[in-house]
């Protein structure tokens, strides 16, 4: 095995580190929009018995059983056909949002089903309307019990956002690939990138557990 030479990577470390921001941005945007969609899907599932519920369930089944990469490809190739021109960045965010919504709806649905019936009754007795019941009673409760699952999914999305590099987006992996193809030190740069992802993930774990502890103290 010829020697590893990390020097060309370290001279470009700042450029690489900038990719961390893009990675977090992609995952963050997709997570927030996915969560909004997921709340809609979960409420649909929770409120209705018939067609709407089945539709919401089918959405999750369909998108959790197909690869995110193929979904992004579908968005990437098919939106322009429909006359919608979006940048690679946006098509990745759209694809990941649709994918995240499916998983998050499953998580939220399970969380909402676990809210004790008494909560619904109390909300009814207090004269809260449907919207208030969801926003002030059910979702906060479900959010608290579901926090670990949601945080875990965000971590999965950070890893998943590496797919953006395939579409030419300059996220962490994309920038690593750039550096690799200009310096021919692909293995070295990928090792450093892997380390950066691991550090990012450990940092996020720390932030989430801190957030959780503060939240528990406040309640």
């Amino acid at each position: 095995m010829t020697g590893l030479d990390f020097h060309p990577v370290f001279t470009r470390l700042l450029f690489l580190l900038g990719g961390v921001g893009v990675t977090v941005l992609i995952a963050g945007l997709a997570f927030v929009f996915g969560l909004l969609l997921a709340v809609g899907l979960a409420v649909l599932r929770f409120e209705n018995q018939g067609t709407w519920r089945r539709l919401s369930r089918s959405y999750s089944t369909a998108l959790t059983n197909t690869p995110q990469l193929s979904q992004i490809f579908a968005v990437f190739y098919c939106l322009p056909l429909m006359g919608v021109m979006v940048s690679p960045f946006l098509s990745v965010v759209i694809g990941m949002t649709l994918n995240a919504a499916a998983y998050l709806a499953d998580i939220l649905g399970a969380g909402m089903a676990r809210v004790p019936a008494v909560y619904h009754e109390v909300a009814l007795t207090l004269g809260l309307n449907r919207r208030q019941t969801y926003l002030r009673v059910i979702l906060p409760y479900a959010g608290r019990t579901m926090f670990p699952a949601l945080a875990n999914h965000f971590q999965i999305m950070i890893l998943g956002s590496a797919m953006a590099s395939i579409f030419g987006v300059e996220d962490l992996t994309g920038r690593a690939y750039d550096i690799g193809s200009t310096t021919f030190r692909v293995l070295e740069v990928m090792l450093v990138t892997g380390g950066l992802y691991a550090l990012l993930s450990f940092a996020l774990t720390g932030v989430f557990s801190l957030f959780r502890r503060t939240m528990e103290r406040m309640v």
Binding site: M1, T2, Q155, L159, G160, S161, A162, M163, S165, I166, T173, A176, V186, L187, M190, L191, T193, G194, Y197, A198, L200, S201, F202
Partner: peptide, 23 residues
């Protein structure tokens, strides 16, 4: 603990280029 925090595609590249470098 570490490998679960690295994206699959990065691991794939690492293994791919490692195999190449080792001949």
């Amino acid at each position: 603990q570490t490998i679960r925090r690295i994206p699959f595609i990065v691991t794939l590249y690492i293994v791919f280029f490692c195999a190449g470098m080792m001949g």
